[in-house]
Design a protein around this nucleic acid. Structure first.
Lengths: 345, 345
DNA sequence: TTGTATGCGTTATCAT
DNA sequence: ATGATAACGCATACAA
């Protein structure tokens, strides 16, 4: 009923049998044709496709799934769907899944209860062909639960035993940032990291903290534990962290933030306090958030949507080749120097 | 195999028939029990639930869907999954759907081709029980295509004929911002709005532009067309818009931005140009992005996740009561005054 | 309240 | 290369 070809009859009641009848073949042949199987003669194929088009037939994914046993769906698990990092990853995943004809089922396990409910009831059972948890390290029990689903598993944003993973090297990333600051002559380098709220694990924070220690130690600088502060995630956390560091008798000359969003808050707090950046204090983040440029923030860039896309691709392959040994991909990070860092005073 | 009750046997091969056998009833009774239908005796219910628990039985959603004809899935359509606004809306939608036991299928129609392919092939046919396009105004043909699916439709972020919608009043929102600036004595008020890229419609931009005109006119101020600039979305667009306005012989004393993300770029550009905010130029945005606070940006707040949640609730109701007249919800917006605005010089 | 039997729309295994 | 037919696992009229 449309002139531009977008809308058609769309009678949802047309089934494969209707197409078969119209093409003068059996449903088996229609099925084969529509799935592109080889053993169909060109003539038959043509008739089937024509009939299907004329009826504007659409296969019923559900019936197909029941019969084939494959759901053509992938569950994506995130702790905070609306945060920059996760939204980026999800977009990356979506692109790949879409192109593979797979559905993306989004699960936002925002709070502890939601997460607990999820792993107890496991709504994914018999519902998806693969699972992709994003930057949410799992307990052994949780991993076991997902394993029990019997479908491929890949994680993005960290690593896990025995499953595919895509991530950055957190230690190397922190060291890149430290190296930059050390080269600028900084020795008192603070670290602002986030603590796990709501019982959500954040081992990434631990790893980055250890990297801060090891990186300083390797440079012959004694890491001062009082220069490490733990705050809630987000710009407000960063601001409070900066205030705590500034309040110290001997404040740091540089602050390394576990994420750019923390760094944004740090910069705001420093500005409010009348502290010159980078004259008095240098600030460096991790991520290269799109607004890092606006803040003139020096940071260590990681390719976020790409990690999602990579993880999705690993899953796609794992879905095809059953027992594929878990691969562990580490994507590189790189320093992006802007004007929030400068020589130590 | 586990001590904490999270992991169980999870044999995917256990079917309703197994549960029925173990409970000594028919599959029909198991089905009724598991769905919480009333006509099951307490004793029987107990036995069934016990058997199901012992087998750690999980119903096959797919078989259930094929038999019942309901997919228990909702498609969410977004143009830019990773942008702040859309990520917020999706999170809001997810919360409601999850709580209703509905699956969220995410479709990111990033570019024109993806969008075209989507509406031509309509992968949603027979796949979802409802569709929720977010802030992506549809052509008549596209609307018709979705209508043809025969499932409830609700849009968030704008309005559309004959379908449920949740949105803000764009005109009122712009007028709120203008009122604030006018009260501060501003008369030369610029507007930075975004243009539709990649053939994506952005009628919201049009409406806000007209509101800028009408708001000024109502205050007895002749709207100067040269103070309206159209830029690409994002902070970079905002920055270039600000530069164009500043380059004018008689630049505005205040700049109204169609979104906070534009405003962030404007503030950065003004800072780079050495223009004092709000001394020389006031800036106001729309959204109350979480980073607006960091930028000390005066803005008009809209509740974003809530709009997604509301739209989802409308769909849930529409899925229950078939022919429900389309409701049109307008959520209020409010001025949030920070320090990016001040008296006209 | 409970059981029987059929249908849901495909896929896949056989034959032919 | 094609067709008949049995799964797939549940929901649901209908009967009891």
């Amino acid at each position: 009923m449309s002139e531009d070809g977008v809308t058609l009859s769309l009678d949802p009641a047309v089934s494969m049998e209707d197409v078969a009848r119209r093409a003068g073949v059996s449903t088996a042949t229609v099925s084969r044709t529509l799935r592109g199987l080889p053993n169909v003669s060109a003539a038959t194929r043509g008739r089937v496709l024509k009939a299907a088009a004329e009826l504007s037939y659409a296969i019923s994914p559900i019936a197909s799934r029941l019969a084939s046993g494959r759901t053509h769906s992938v569950a994506v698990l995130v702790p905070y769907a609306s945060r920059w990092f996760f939204a980026q990853v999800v977009a990356g995943v979506e692109g790949v899944l879409r192109e593979e004809g797979l559905d993306l089922l989004l699960y936002n396990l925002a709070d502890h209860e939601a997460r607990e409910r999820f792993f107890q009831r496991l709504p994914l059972r018999r519902r998806v062909d693969a699972v992709l948890p994003v930057a949410m390290p799992l307990t052994d029990a949780e991993t076991g639960a997902l394993r029990g689903l019997g479908v491929p598993l890949a994680v993005a944003g960290h690593r896990a035993d025995g499953v595919h993973s895509v991530r950055i090297d957190d230690t190397a990333t922190v060291h890149i940032a430290l190296r930059h600051l050390l080269d600028l002559g900084h020795r008192r380098i603070g670290l602002i990291s986030t603590y796990a709220n709501q019982k959500m694990w954040l081992p990434v924070a631990d790893e980055r903290r250890r990297a801060w220690q090891s990186g300083l130690a390797a440079a012959g600088v004694a890491p001062a534990p009082e220069l490490v502060v733990s705050v809630p995630f987000g710009h407000a956390g960063g601001a409070s962290g900066a205030e705590r560091l500034l309040a110290r008798p001997d404040p740091p000359t540089a602050i390394l933030c576990e994420s750019d969003e923390l760094a944004f808050g740090v910069l705001a707090a420093l500005r409010r306090a009348g502290v010159d950046v980078p004259g008095q204090v240098s600030v460096v983040g991790i991520d290269d958030h799109e607004l890092a440029e606006v803040f003139d923030l020096t940071t260590v860039r990681q390719a976020v949507p790409e990690q999602g896309a990579l993880a999705a691709r690993m899953l796609v392959r794992a879905m095809r080749e059953a027992r594929r040994p878990p691969s562990e991909v580490v994507v590189p990070t790189e320093l992006v120097v802007r004007t929030s860092t400068g020589p130590a005073r």
